[in-house]
Design a protein around this nucleic acid. Structure first.
Lengths: 297, 297
DNA sequence: TCCATTCTCTGACTAAAGTCAGAAATATCA
DNA sequence: TGATATTTCTGACTTTAGTCAGAGAATGGA
């Protein structure tokens, strides 16, 4: 990452912000304040719970309440208590609100079209394909990886997804109880740790590490959500776990895997893992890998 | 331009705006209001005239004045009358203001670096190159083309740039008086028209058309500023002029050019122009071209 | 020299956005 | 059942952003 690359990112930010400015003018184009327009948009055709809106837009509850009253006053929105939990309230669009929403939608579409309109067909295709790349990789860079507890709701959810995928992909199905997989508690200090990847707050991947003192550390339960595959998250989790293992003084990392997880196997090989003999007797595994770690400094 | 392309542009807008949001938080990160921070940034290390700031930021003069007073009050900015014209005032940063500006600069750099930081080297290169493409083509799509008077300040400026370039590139130099180039007045209704291309308000290209009734119309003084070459503006101007000629009932468009303007010649050829005999006796020309126009409907 | 124009500033506003401290209703759990 | 937490709402604010009219100084051109 050199200065020229950073300068390019900054130039890009400037131009993209200029265009994004046009986007908020799309909202401002209506005579409605931006805050109200954004809220109307966020409620959407299907409606939304007020607490969700608060979280998504990051608004103060008092302020949000007032915005809702304003939209209600204009006959665009109706707010009713939730059937299941009467503390929670749901906002839905009235027929007039839906018309207004459609109008915003169509403005947004017109704006997008106006970006392509002045370009020749060749440049148009070139721009769309570059935008696709930028969107994909910008999304990748929005993913944060941090140590969390495997017992947290997000941690449990990822592990559940992981098991479900194994059940589906292994020839024999998969039952966590039969596997020699460690108890979640093992992936917590002092014996190990658990990394969780999040995109916009939602969990999208995980990976566990178990440290065995001077022996090689074990990498377990690496999982990446299907919607973010191909963005390099697997490799990122892997190298982060290796770093943590090195910091803990492990001379190497080891892992096992099933023959059906072909992408994982090729990622391990290309990340410097060499196949070794069965070291843990895991009944679901067909391959065992190890990577020597350079000493931490 | 199909629905899938438009959808991609919208997805891109969403993600890029999300990142751009981080950008305004960079400003908000300081405890200073966004408006003040933007102004401080825009004044820059070299200072700026107040009227320029007003134009660049698009602010009301009263509002700008108050923002300047606020920054002055904090000891970040000094405003002094311009030496040449005492109506104009220049804003410059005080040493403290420079420190503040450097802080914003470094925040912006850190933000840009944080976009690349989570990516592998391969993805990093891929992202930077896609950003470059997006920036280039988004800039192209920000260029507006409109009919203006060739006598307007912007029109004159473009023509002057055009002449200067011919002087430089023609083997024989160039003197508008010797050329059979038309008087600017001819490129105005009813005999013709003049197109001017602008990027963020600044003129970046032009092209004139002279209509000869039922005879082929003539295209004259096509010029594209060096900094926006390669973005398809020449072709855009050309096809717009052809459209105007067709609307005026011309059966064809004609033009002449000098042998040294090789990019122009190849653009004419690839746009459907065929070489014809000298039709106007222009002393500086070596090639004459014509393109038949399908009748307008 | 006078008149129109340019440029900046001040005073007097408004609207939008956001904050904070409770109150009230409902749900959850020991 | 009671204590605690969650969710939304209202009232009473502040700050930011922006508009508009007009004053006053300086300039440029007839």
């Amino acid at each position: 990452m050199d200065a020229a690359q950073i300068a390019q990112v900054r130039r890009f930010n400037r131009v993209a912000t200029e265009r994004a400015g046009a986007l908020s003018e799309r909202f401002l184009g209506r005579r409605r304040p931006l805050g109200q327009a954004r809220l109307l948009w966020e409620i959407g055709r299907d409606g939304a719970e007020v607490r969700d809106l608060r979280a998504r837009l990051g608004l103060d509850s008092g302020y949000l309440s007032r915005l809702l009253r304003a939209l209600e006053g204009e006959g665009l929105v109706a707010v009713r208590p939730d059937a299941a939990d009467a503390r929670v309230r749901r906002a839905t669009l009235t027929p007039r609100g839906v018309r207004e929403w459609d109008e915003l939608e169509s403005r947004s579409e017109t704006l997008a079209a106006s970006v392509l309109e002045p370009l020749s067909e060749r440049h148009e295709r070139e721009l769309v394909s570059a935008m696709k790349t930028v969107e994909r990789l910008l999304t990748a860079s929005l993913i944060s990886v941090a140590v969390e507890s495997p017992r947290s709701p997000a941690g449990r959810w990822c592990l559940e997804q992981y098991y479900a995928e194994l059940r589906e992909r292994f020839d024999t199905g998969f039952d966590p109880a039969t596997s020699s997989l460690p108890d979640p508690g093992e992936m917590a200090p002092p014996k190990g740790l658990f990394l969780l990847a999040r995109l916009r707050g939602e969990p999208v991947g995980c990976g566990g590490l178990i440290v065995h003192g001077e022996e090689p550390a074990e990498i377990k339960r690496m999982w990446v959500a299907p919607e973010v595959r191909g963005l390099g998250l697997g490799r990122r989790l892997l190298s982060e776990l290796e770093r943590k293992a090195r910091e803990a003084g492990a001379p190497a990392t080891r892992l096992d895997t099933n023959r059906n997880l072909t992408e994982a196997i090729s990622m391990y090989r290309s990340s410097g893992y060499a196949e070794i003999a069965d070291f843990n007797g895991e009944p679901y595994a067909h391959h065992w890998f190890e990577k020597r770690l350079p000493p931490s400094d």
